[in-house]
Design a protein around this nucleic acid. Structure first.
Length: 113
DNA sequence: GCAATGACGTACC
DNA sequence: AGGTACGCCATTG
């Protein structure tokens, strides 16, 4: 268990209801801008052991990232129940639902342009 | 300990 | 605009 992993767990647990975060965003918030795939791995192991809001994690496009149809539809169900809206293409409006970490975090958003 | 894995992201066809 | 290729690196077998 590395500090990065603990940070990731902490970040995920801090995602408020009705908000989402991307894998890359969590990785950046945890101090490893290129650690998106580690977030995936961590989610795999942690979601079984710990109680994490794994359903509030989506990919950079704002889509459900799960490969299993059953699990992904379940995730969508969870998000819907928290008030998150999907558009026609099944995409979440990240501008609106993405959770921004506090000012303590060096969370760098991509340039608005 | 080394090789494969993975619910990603980004750069390139 | 849509598909492919590859880097990333903690965790797992």
């Amino acid at each position: 268990m590395t500090p990065f992993t603990e940070k990731v767990i902490s970040v995920i647990r801090s995602i408020p209801e009705g908000s989402v975060m991307t894998y890359g965003g969590i990785a950046r918030a945890a101090g490893s801008p290129r650690g998106a795939r580690q977030v995936v791995r961590i989610l795999h192991s942690m979601s079984r052991k710990y109680k994490l809001p794994w359903h509030r994690v989506v990919n950079a496009e704002g889509r459900i990232a799960l490969t299993d149809d059953e699990s992904s539809s379940l995730q969508q169900l969870f998000l819907l129940s928290e008030g998150i809206v999907f558009d026609d293409k099944g995409v979440i409006d990240l501008q609106r639902y993405l959770h921004h970490p506090g000012p303590d975090e060096d969370y760098l958003l991509p340039p608005p342009e």
